[in-house]
Design a protein around this nucleic acid. Structure first.
Length: 640
RNA sequence: GCCGGUGUAGCUCAGUUGGCCAGAGCAGCUGAUUUGUAAUCAGCGGGUCGGCGGUUCGAAUCCGUCCACCGGCUCCA
């Protein structure tokens, strides 16, 4: 007998060799039908696997993340089974579950698959699912496993098996498809009721661009057909929020083939939005003792040789600019920090002067790979809300915490309440990618971890995500659709002060080296605004809206009254305009609504006679007729 | 950079066995209309069919190449 402990603390005895599924059935049939896998102690198992020891057991269903993972992983096997049936000779590599769905990387040889083939593959998958095949687990020796894949000529699986321990290798089989897999899997294939292949893309074997290019087929599957419908609906909603589309519709920014790939053009309304954000941040920074500086867009090659950027990125970046005079070489500025270091050096600093906080909305240029460019999210020319804080080592902790406060303030003000702080540390295997001493790295890493902890931030640690000169605290925000984006960043840097030989005179009259903090709460205006657009679907809060008020006269006769309203709004500092076109009011409302203008004021005979405006709030509709004082109060309330 | 896909007017899109002067709606311009809560009516103008090269009697349509964009991979100071 084995003792099984349930999540509620109950313990029941079962026969040795009982399966999770049998336990579920002993509780209720409806539970048994929902079980996808079980969590036994801390491991996820097949519900059909025999249990031979005392254990705590939790049933995993579609409602559990791990249940979904099992479901999607099994769906990946189903995809493979369908591909094997439709494309004989295809070689399989790996096929995991991902955040939402699954993929399988396959080597199709000379063939190719496009989205036109999806319907056929989906159909085959559902046909195979209906066979209600079980996933049979079997232990297999390393030698046998190798022999199997050598026989069918699958070098990928051979490579995978070579990296595994003998005695630790399992195969799973459903229908005619056998796969090297550690599992677990769902009880049978017919739990999969709906399947959608989402896209097909290239992927490198083992993520290495020097190795074979495979075909990755992405899909998602569900235990109920209506869940697929919801999924499709959600994807469509996300598409409507695409910042590239909304940016075009609202006239915020544009790209031009003639100007160049990844080089955004900011249109008047986008520039307005950007300037409002900039003013907001500048104001907050002034309160925290920052000083604004400005630096040129290019600098001598030696500047970046000193900083280390040239050695790290020189080859893969925009190539040097040569002057008519020989031997002079300039580079486009990839970062502001080297310039700021030189600003620091214009003065002999006393410990009494520190921290020195230099801020710049600095535009930088980086040659991103062509395939990486993506709307405003990834561009080749962008403006950082950059600042560099030069402080004494003993000031570092307080400065860092003050910066965290600023970042949190910015996020809160802009409606991103759900965020996590990612502590980005060095790659543990490959330390050669980084500059600076081991001692300084450790100090910097510790400073970040401590500050994040003291501020009570929700943190995760990621190795290999550090910058080449220091560790980072990166802020990942979740938007309205639950998608995660990296925005702000704070970095501690001991290296550049050394490279630039930065100094201050201490109370002991000796020269000391300051520590630098790099920080950008938005990251870049480009990226931040892209995320802001996708989060708000272009319905910006009143204080950010490039156009806040549209005044809509019923007919030409009321233009003079509309002008009066406009003047009053402008005197109060609101961004407003009048729609003078000889269109019907329905048309004016429609156009203002399409532009997502927060306040629409309809003015006609009644309003003109009584000194009123009929208010429409975008997203809400008619708010009735009010006088100007009430309108200002209404809008002011929204601004606060 | 790599794999796959796409590229027709300012925008959204028709136009596939290669063949009349390449189409529509919206937007624009002109005129009429003076309007009460999400598209007033009429007329007019607008396109090197992404660029270049090729096949062909003939190319938006087929082939090559380059560019841009989209989805991934790799990368991200």
């Amino acid at each position: 007998m084995v003792n099984i402990t349930f999540p509620d603390g109950n313990v029941r005895q079962y026969e040795d060799g009982i399966t999770g599924m049998a336990i579920a059935k002993s509780i209720s049939n409806s539970l048994a039908k929902k079980v996808l896998s079980i969590k036994i102690n801390d491991e996820v198992w097949d519900a059909t696997r025999e249990i031979h020891t005392d254990a705590s057991v939790r049933f995993l269903t579609w409602d559990d993340t791990e249940g979904k993972t099992t479901f999607w992983h099994s769906s990946a096997h189903l995809l493979a089974e369908a591909l094997q049936a439709l494309y004989p000779g295809v070689q399989f590599t790996i096929g995991p579950a991902i955040g939402e769905g699954f993929y399988y990387d396959v080597d199709l040889g000379d063939r190719s698959i496009s989205s036109e083939d999806f319907a056929k593959i989906e159909k085959k998958m559902l046909e195979l699912a209906k066979q209600k095949n079980t996933f049979e687990r079997s232990d297999i020796s390393k030698a046998e496993a190798l022999a199997h894949y050598e026989k069918i000529g699958n070098k990928y699986k051979v490579e995978l098996i070579e990296g595994l321990e003998d005695g630790d290798i399992t195969f799973y089989q459903q229908g005619d498809f056998v796969d090297l897999c550690k599992g677990p899997h769902i009880p049978h294939t017919s739990l999969v009721k709906a399947v959608k292949l989402t896209n097909v893309a290239g992927a490198y074997w083992r993520g290495d661009e020097k190795r074979e290019q495979l075909t990755r087929i992405y899909g998602v599957s569900f235990p109920k057909a209506n869940l697929l419908e919801e999924y499709v609906h959600r994807i469509e909603e996300a598409k409507k929020r695409d910042h590239r589309k909304i940016g075009q519709q609202l006239g915020l920014f544009a790209f031009s083939e003639r100007v160049g790939s990844g080089l955004p053009l900011w249109l008047p309304k986008g520039t307005k939005l950007r300037n409002i954000l900039q003013d907001f941040l500048m104001d907050e920074q002034r309160k925290q003792g920052y000083q604004m500086v400005m630096t040129p867009h290019i600098g001598r090659k030696e500047l970046y040789v000193t900083s280390g950027h040239f050695a790290k990125y020189g080859e893969d970046s925009f190539q040097p600019i040569n002057t008519p005079k020989e031997g002079e070489v300039y580079l486009l500025k990839p970062m502001n920090c080297p310039h700021h270091c030189e600003i620091y050096k214009t003065n002999p600093w006393s410990y009494r002067d520190l921290p020195v906080r230099l801020a710049e909305f600095g535009t930088v240029y980086r040659y991103e790979q062509s395939g990486e460019l993506n709307g405003l999210l990834r561009v080749r020319g962008f403006t950082q809300d950059d600042a560099h804080l030069f402080c004494m080592p003993e000031q570092l902790a307080d400065e860092f915490k003050a910066v965290i406060d600023l970042v949190v303030l910015v996020f809160t003000k802009l409606g991103f309440s759900d965020f996590t702080a990612q502590v980005s540390l060095r790659d543990q295997e490959n330390r050669a990618k980084y500059i600076g001493s081991e001692e300084n790295w450790e100090k910097a890493e510790q400073a970040i971890i401590d500050a994040a902890k003291e501020k009570g931030l929700k943190t995760v640690i990621e190795y290999g995500e550090a910058a080449f000169y220091g560790p980072k605290l990166d802020f990942m925000v979740k938007d309205a659709l639950g998608r995660s984006w990296q925005l702000g960043t704070i970095q501690v840097d001991y290296s550049l002060p050394e490279r630039f030989e930065l100094e201050y005179t201490g109370a002991d009259n000796q020269k000391h080296r300051p520590v630098m903090i790099h920080r950008a709460p938005f990251g870049s205006f480009e990226r931040f605004i892209a995320v802001l657009i996708e989060n708000s679907a272009g319905n910006f809060p009143l204080w950010l809206a490039p156009e806040q008020v549209a005044i809509l006269p019923i007919s030409d006769k009321f233009s003079p009254y509309a002008d009066q309203i406009l003047k009053q709004l402008q005197e109060k500092g609101f961004r407003a305009s009048v729609d003078y076109r000889s269109e019907k009011i329905g048309r004016k409302i429609r156009d203002a609504s399409m532009q997502k203008i927060p306040y629409q004021l309809v003015v006609g005979e009644k309003e003109a006679n009584e000194g009123l405006v009929a208010v429409r709030r975008h997203g809400e509709g008619d708010r009735g007729t009010v006088n100007m004082d009430d309108l200002f109060a209404m809008m002011q309330a929204e601004l606060n």
